[in-house]
Simulated scan of single mutants.
Amino acid sequence: MWKEFKDFAMKGNVIDLAIAVVIGAAFGKIVSSLVDNIIMPLIGILTGGIDFTKSFIWQVGDATVSFGVFLQSIIDFFIISFAIFMFIRLLNKLTKKKKEEVVEEEAAPELDTKEELLREIRDLLKAQNTNK
């Protein structure tokens, strides 16, 4: 059983997934910091100094509903989604260029001498038919 688990864990997909999760968490922290420390204060300035995390709070007794924090989370989500979209778009462009380079590098197959002769005959027949 241990050997099976080791084989599973050492496959490329599992390791790639683990790396993606770690990088994704770090990327999420960066974008959250961008939203919390730069974008939301700028939005607050544009809206007259409103801080969404401290505004839009509805309190009944001991219960508190923070619409501002939820709104900030929605903005955070859209910025993260857009950043991931732009990263994937860039990655797709780079891989597409690499694929095009590989296709260009593939040489045309060399023709057999019989095929070359048949093409020459075809071209001569075409030329005779157009001259008539």
Rank of each mutant, 00 (worst) to 15 (best):
G49L: 05
K98N: 10
E104Y: 10
R89W: 08
K97C: 01
A83R: 04
V22P: 00
E106D: 12
D62I: 02
D112I: 07
M1H: 10
G28Q: 04
K126A: 11
E110H: 07
S81W: 07
M10H: 05
R122Y: 11
T113S: 09
S33I: 02
I45L: 10
A9C: 04
L94T: 09
D51I: 06
K96G: 03
G48K: 10
S66Q: 13
F87K: 04
M86V: 01
K54F: 14
T130C: 06
L17Q: 07
L117P: 01
S32A: 07
I38W: 04
I79P: 00
I23F: 13
S55M: 11
S81D: 03
L124V: 13
K97M: 09
S55I: 11
D112M: 09
M40T: 01
A26L: 12
W2K: 04
T53Y: 09
F87W: 05
A108I: 12
L124C: 05
S66V: 06
F27C: 00
T130H: 07
D123G: 03
I19N: 13
S32E: 03
L46N: 07
F85S: 03
E4G: 02
V22E: 07
I39C: 01
L42P: 00
S66Y: 14
L42S: 06
E101S: 07
E106N: 12
I79C: 00
V103Q: 05
L118A: 08
V31D: 00
T130Q: 14
K6V: 02
N13C: 02
S32Y: 03
T64K: 12
I75Y: 04
N131K: 14
K98P: 00
E120V: 02
D76Y: 07
M1V: 03
R119K: 15
F8N: 03
E4H: 06
A63I: 15
F27K: 01
M40P: 00
I15M: 11
I57L: 14
K96H: 13
T53Q: 14
K98M: 06
N13Q: 10
D112W: 08
F27M: 03
W2Q: 05
F27V: 03
L124Q: 13
R119W: 15
I15H: 12
G24E: 09
I74K: 03
V31L: 01
E101T: 04
S33P: 00
I75P: 02
I121V: 15
Q128T: 07
L118H: 11
G49F: 07
D7S: 04
N13D: 13
I84R: 01
T64G: 02
M40W: 00
Q59D: 11
N13A: 05
L71K: 03
P41N: 08
S73A: 15
I79Y: 01
I50S: 09
F67V: 11
